[in-house]
């Protein structure tokens, strides 16, 4: 589904990613872990198409197409979803209007008829119960005045509505209590199918108690320095990141 090949990325002329290689196949869940400043969010930003991220080398192939050639909105329409680390508040734009516009843009892209207001509300109602998001939140402006946990739940709610092929969750678990964490995990697990894949970017292992990854990668100083199965996450939790950084330095 996704092939990242020798990806090098600069932000403000500073090299952040120094040659990432990663392949994600349909049906897989990948966790990307690593200490602060290792480039995890930069990788998410590069995948979603943020403008301040400049790709200097390498390629990203998504479903056989050149991802770097697509606008952020086209990437979304092609089925990529980014769960934001810091979801943006948009005063004055209602959740309903925002998501209905997004869904209908997607339907237009797939040559489907737009959903009517009633149809959309019905869909929203269904997905709301899946995520367990408070009804009042969807009546408000996008993320406006939401607590940290509510914002993250709202990301999962949007993901449930948009049903992406590839979900990238950028530290969606940070700052969440156990209940919220379960909701986030539940959302990801519900999306899981042989046709979809997820990339979970996280600093801690605890989300991975609820979402079982097929692969765990450690990102350090802009490179993937270690890959393994789910047990790697447990090892990191136990020993911290030092043993890996020491290993690298020793080499």
């Amino acid at each position: 589904m996704l092939k990242i090949n020798n990806l090098k990325v600069n932000i403000n002329d500073k090299q952040i990613l120094k040659g990432i290689n990663l392949e994600v196949k349909a049906g897989e869940v990948h966790a990307i872990m690593g200490p602060n400043g290792s480039g995890k969010s930069t990788l998410a930003s590069a995948l979603a198409g943020r403008e301040y991220v400049s790709v200097t080398d390498g390629s990203i192939e998504y479903l056989g197409k050149d991802l770097l050639d697509m606008n952020p909105e086209v990437r979304a329409l092609e089925g990529i979803f980014l769960g934001f680390q810091y979801p943006v508040e948009i005063p004055g734009v209602s959740m309903v209007n925002f998501m209905r516009t997004a869904i209908n843009e997607q339907r237009k892209y797939k040559n489907l008829e737009a959903l009517s207001a009633a149809e959309f509300l019905k869909l929203m109602h269904e997905k709301k119960s899946v995520v367990g998001i408070d009804s009042n939140l969807t009546k408000r402006s996008v993320n406006e005045g939401f607590s940290g946990g509510e914002k993250k739940k709202n990301e999962i709610f949007q993901m449930a509505l948009l049903e992406p092929r590839l979900a990238i969750l950028d530290e969606t678990d940070s700052g969440l209590d156990i209940d919220a964490l379960r909701i986030v995990a539940n959302g990801v697990n519900l999306l899981k199918s042989p046709e979809t894949a997820s990339i979970i970017i996280t600093h801690y292992q605890r989300l991975l108690d609820y979402i079982v990854p097929d692969f765990v990668h450690v990102l350090y100083k802009g490179r993937i320095v270690k890959s393994g199965g789910k047990e790697l996450a447990l090892e990191l939790e136990e020993k911290g990141y030092e043993w890996i950084t020491e290993e690298i330095t020793a080499e």
Binding site: G49, E51, N71, P72, A76, L77, I90, G92, V93
Partner: peptide, 26 residues
């Protein structure tokens, strides 16, 4: 707000429409 624009685009809403939604909200 560029951040808000990117947020909307990342949900599949094209740039023009995102701008309109923001202006309209304003």
């Amino acid at each position: 707000d560029e951040e808000a624009l990117f947020y909307m685009r990342s949900r599949g809403i094209n740039e023009r429409e995102s701008r309109l939604l923001l202006m309209y909200a304003f």
